[in-house]
């Protein structure tokens, strides 16, 4: 008792074995217990004499950090005490664990909702884009066909320009002699033009400004040149459905007159004079 060990016990400065010894002694000898109480009281008063009032707000700060258990107010200490303690701790733990779980659950809930919303938005966007794509394809097809139309028209115009140029080149060339063939008794209304270029030995007939009666499928017109009183074959042509504007006939270097007869398809070796439709002298 006089060794100072009790003081060290109160100060918490003993090994576990020494501590047990002191506790045993305190159980056995009331005076040891009283001495310990006396030392505790003294050191407590010593501490009290140095007391410093904590700052304002510290109290509320401290209390706000705690979780209170206001139930079980009637529980007696002793035997039930341990249970209450357990309950307090477990409910304390639960209180901390539940919000953690539910916040985790909330996180999953929200992320699922977000994913689902995103999915719906994606599908809607895809649908809109698909519709736009279809529309564009249709427009493209329309444009392509109208483009084709224009191309055709250009081709057509090109051909027309070409043929017009051809006509112009014939009519404006002074080497061509224009020979007007007039209707005979067989067809007084008929007439056509033959362009003859003796220099280049070219014979063209004007298909556009031709006015000849229609003939059936088994016949064709045949152009003849009268050279020194003899008819020379210059080729056949159709009176209708002709694409060409100026039709080039067989070559000849001289002629006194031109005549057209209606002959069986393919032409004849000698002209059928009874079927002479038009003729004209140079």
């Amino acid at each position: 008792m006089e060794s100072g060990i009790l003081e060290l016990y109160v100060l918490g400065d003993l090994s576990p074995e020494e501590k047990l010894k002191v506790e045993e002694m305190a159980q056995l000898y009331p005076e040891v217990k009283a001495e310990l109480a006396e030392i505790e009281k003294t050191l407590g008063k010593l501490a009290d004499s140095y007391a410093i009032e904590p700052s304002e707000g510290l109290r509320d700060n401290f209390l706000s950090k705690l979780t209170f258990n206001e139930e079980d107010t009637n529980t007696s200490i002793s035997s039930v005490n341990l249970d209450t303690k357990q309950q307090t701790f477990s409910s304390h733990n639960n209180a901390k664990v539940i919000p953690l779980n539910s916040s985790k659950l909330n996180f999953y809930k929200y992320s699922f909702a977000a994913c689902f919303t995103l999915l719906i938005m994606s599908v809607a966007a895809l649908f809109v884009l698909y519709n736009n794509l279809q529309e564009s394809k249709e427009q493209l097809a329309v444009l392509q066909s109208s483009n084709q139309d224009y191309a055709n028209q250009v081709n057509y115009l090109d051909k027309k320009v070409e043929s017009t140029n051809e006509i112009l080149s014939v009519y404006t060339n002074p080497d061509y002699k224009m020979v007007e063939l007039k209707g005979t008794a067989n067809s007084p209304e008929s007439k056509m033009l033959v362009a003859f270029n003796p220099k280049e030995q070219k014979v063209m007939i004007d298909m556009k400004n031709m006015s000849m009666p229609a003939h059936d499928e088994n016949h064709q017109y045949q152009l003849w040149a009268l050279v020194d009183g003899k008819p020379v074959d210059l080729g056949v042509f159709d009176g209708v459905n002709s694409e060409a504007v100026m039709k080039k006939m067989k070559a000849i270097d001289k002629a006194q007159a031109f005549a057209v007869t209606l002959e069986p398809k393919g032409g004849s070796v000698n002209p059928t004079l009874e079927k002479m439709m038009v003729m004209g002298a140079i």
């Binding site: 109290r59 209390l63 209170f68 258990n69 079980d72 107010t73 303690k85 307090t88």
Partner: peptide, 16 residues
């Protein structure tokens, strides 16, 4: 031991 509010308040008032 029972984690009552009054315990925390008394602890603070008596010993802080």
């Amino acid at each position: 031991q029972q984690h009552k509010a009054i315990g925390a308040e008394a602890l603070y008032d008596m010993y802080s």
